[in-house]
Each structure stands twice: as structure tokens, then as C-alpha cells.
Design a protein around this nucleic acid. Sequence first.
DNA 1: ACACTATATCTTCCATGGAAGATATATGCT
DNA 2: AGCATATATCTTCCATGGAAGATATAGTGT
Lengths: 165, 165
Amino acid sequence: MNEDRVDRIQAAWQTERPDLDVSPQGVIGRLHRLAAHLTAELAVVYAKFGLSEGEFDVLAALRRAGTPYERAPGEIALHTMVTTGAVSKRVDRLEQAGLVRRMRSSTDGRGRVVRLTPAGRRLIDKAFSAHMANEQRLLAGLSAAQTSQLEGLLKTWLTDLEPPD
Amino acid sequence: MNEDRVDRIQAAWQTERPDLDVSPQGVIGRLHRLAAHLTAELAVVYAKFGLSEGEFDVLAALRRAGTPYERAPGEIALHTMVTTGAVSKRVDRLEQAGLVRRMRSSTDGRGRVVRLTPAGRRLIDKAFSAHMANEQRLLAGLSAAQTSQLEGLLKTWLTDLEPPD
DNA sequence: ACACTATATCTTCCATGGAAGATATATGCT
DNA sequence: AGCATATATCTTCCATGGAAGATATAGTGT
């Protein structure tokens, strides 16, 4: 197969540090570059709906919770892999934009609940459809067989790194 | 195979948006989660050497350039996938720490050259060895065959998304 | 040589998120 | 009940990086 940027990086290390086995970079380096490119491509679509990646993630987490489209901030933090401080600020911005509302938890005085407004629901539904179309496009370079093989390998690895619950 | 977090997210979307094909998330969602976990794990090792990820990347780019371990800031920006503004600040910090020096380019009055100091060279050599050991560890959950299959698929995809030079 | 445009780097301003502290409420123990 | 500890969220401070403007120098056409 043709040489890509990661191959060139590996070749350079091979020359400079022949004592090391740099083969892990073949996987980890490429995964990082892919993630960076994908993130940038996905953000283009979020921006069409006036959203940043973080805001999109929060709306998506609320939307897929199902009616009444609400979750506690701590729960959102877990789903979106950021701290509760970050969630707090994202929710501030979304609330400002009228896409979510903050309410007191009915069961825990310390708790709050973030709920999608009707406008938030409409926006995330449109944005998510466009998001999926975008992801399809980004995967178009792989055949169905390659995609499913890749999915299996990523799942195996992720399960290893991210123990169940 | 067992259900992981991404499966659960997909199942939720399937229920909420049965009109959409959310299969791309099986690959893209997992890739993002993996990248996030790996980034965090790798940063632990950088920190042992007093480095952030960005600083490590700059030192690594200089180190693998070979003697005399120097590159122009713009070149570093390309290699590390950040803007020249970010490189400028990273180099500020590294220079402050005595790990690199900035010099005028001998061939272009506009250009500067960033060069590893002997201390920088020593540090990145130690840090990079530890980094590789860490990457080996993170890949330990996959067999050699799985790793090489995964590498092939990622390379195919990356080549599609990141056209050669 | 001069003017215009292009390029390399740096600077400034802003957005975002993490870490740790602050606050309010819950829970458990005596 | 009362007190200590735990928990949920928010706030504050700081680090980092992007975008666009500022500066210096190159290159190009006349």
C-alpha cells in the first residue's frame, strides 16, 4: 500500500531511534489523526445549526433520553466525557439560546434537571439528521465489509480500555 | 459480543429516531471515545516529564527531524496539526524551560528556526521511550493480528480523508 | 529601484474546558 | 435531633488553542 504521513513519521523514528519499536504508532497515531480530521468535519455541520461540538453533544444526550428529554447535569457529564463544570457552562449557553431549561429536581434538593425546550427539540432533530448524513459521507471511503470489520476491532479495543459500567 | 456504551447510545437513537440509520456511530462514536481515553492515558506519561501533550508533540517533531534537530515553526504546525499561533506559544513555553532555542533562519529573513537544546534532546529521548512503552501497554488488549488488521483499516480510511501531500 | 502582493511568524483577543474551591442539600451515625 | 461526612452543582481561576490582525521580509512585474 502507499505511504501515508504516519508511515513517514514512523520511518523517521526508525532512523533516529532504532532501539525502539515504534509500531504502536501505526495504530495510535492514525487513530489520533483520524479523530482530529473527523472532529473538524463534524464541527462544520454543527456550526450550520449555530452549535459548537459541546453544545451539540448536550442536546443529543437530552434528545436520546426520550420524553421528557431531560437529564441531570452529572449524568450529561458522564455521557459526554467532560467535567460537570464544563456541562454547567454548556448548559448556560444553551439556556441563553432558549434551547434548554434548568429545573429543580423533584427528588433531590441538590439536583437540577436540564430539559430540552420545544425549540431545542426541533433544532437537535434537524441537526442530528444532518449529522448522520455527514457521518455517512465521512465513511464513504470504506466498503460495508471494511466498516463492519473496523467497528468490531474498535469495539474490542474500547471494551478493553473502558470496562463495562 | 457484549454490549458497550456505544451500543447503548445507538439503541437509544434507534428508539427515538427510527427514521435514521445511525450505524456510522458504531465506528465514529467508538473512534472518538477511544481517542479521548488514549489522549488521557498518554498525557499521564507526558506529565511525568513535565510536559503537556502539545509540548511533547513539538519536541518529538524536532527530535525525529534528526541532527541538528531543528524545524521552522510553520513546519512544526503542519506536523502537529495546530495553527502557527499555537506553535508560537508552545515554543515560548519550551524556550522558557530551556528545552528549545529560537534562531533566525539563515536563508529567509522572515523565518525562524526552532532547535532542540541538549537538555531538550535528553528529555525527549527519555520521554519518548516511556511514551512507546505506554502505547504498547494501551494496545495490549488486541492480538498482533487484530492490531495489524486495525492498522490497515485505519490507514485506508485516513488515506481517503487525508489526501497525500 | 519601486510598488504590490505573498509569506512567515508573532500577538491579541476570545472561547472552551479542567481543577479545585464554594454552596446547598442528603445521608448516616450516635 | 444534631453533627459529620458525602454528594450535586456551580463558580472561579487558569491553561490552551483558534482566528484574525500586526509586523517584517521576500518575491514579482514594470
